[in-house]
């Protein structure tokens, strides 16, 4: 390669490196603002601001969903494996909402540490499966194992995302 081209290539690489470093520094400074939601552990540690609308995300705990008999109000507990937070929501939940599902709820924490949500979004994972395979898993009793493995994986992802 002739010296002029080498010099120009070096300049181009230097531009990429410089911009890359600048963006990396800016993003790491903004880390907290880029995260879409707070995990229950962050809320328990007091990292989440009080008196303002925040998003909380995690897995809906098995057996924690309590529906009111005369209104749309639903109470459930969201966990990341270590800590959990109770969420109260009045409205129509997304189709994918179920126990063990990842969700993101937006709302304010009240004095009792309960998140009064006005929006609940379901978080889908990267796994896709035909219904027959799911049925086969349920029949062979493998589903519990599968769910436990999935939950462990999700919890791990939540933890490593912090």
């Amino acid at each position: 390669m002739n010296p002029l081209r080498k010099k120009r290539l070096f300049i181009v690489l230097a531009i990429i490196a410089g911009v890359g470093i600048a963006v990396a520094l800016a993003l790491s400074a903004l880390q907290q603002n880029i995260n879409l939601f707070y995990t229950p552990t962050q809320i328990a540690n007091g990292d989440a601001p009080q008196d303002t609308r925040i998003r909380a995300g995690g897995l809906v705990e098995e057996g924690s969903v309590k529906r009111s008999s005369d209104s749309l109000e639903t109470d459930f507990v969201v966990t990341d494996g270590a800590k959990s937070v109770t969420i109260r929501y009045s409205g129509i939940l997304p189709d994918l909402f179920r126990e063990g599902q990842g969700i993101v709820a937006m709302g304010k924490l009240n004095a009792g540490g309960v998140l009064i949500a006005d929006e609940v979004l379901a978080k889908h994972d990267e796994n896709y499966m035909p219904p027959e395979v799911m049925q086969a898993l349920e029949q062979s009793g493998m589903k519990q194992k599968h769910d436990a493995a999935q939950a462990a994986k999700k919890t791990y992802q939540l933890e490593s995302a912090q």
Partner: peptide, 23 residues
């Protein structure tokens, strides 16, 4: 890197995909 609503990659060139062959 961050908490997002979007799920991680389902389809990757290097690792085993998180879906069965016929999908």
């Amino acid at each position: 890197w961050w908490n997002t609503l979007h799920q991680p990659a389902t389809f990757s060139v290097v690792t085993k995909p998180a879906m069965p062959f016929e999908m």
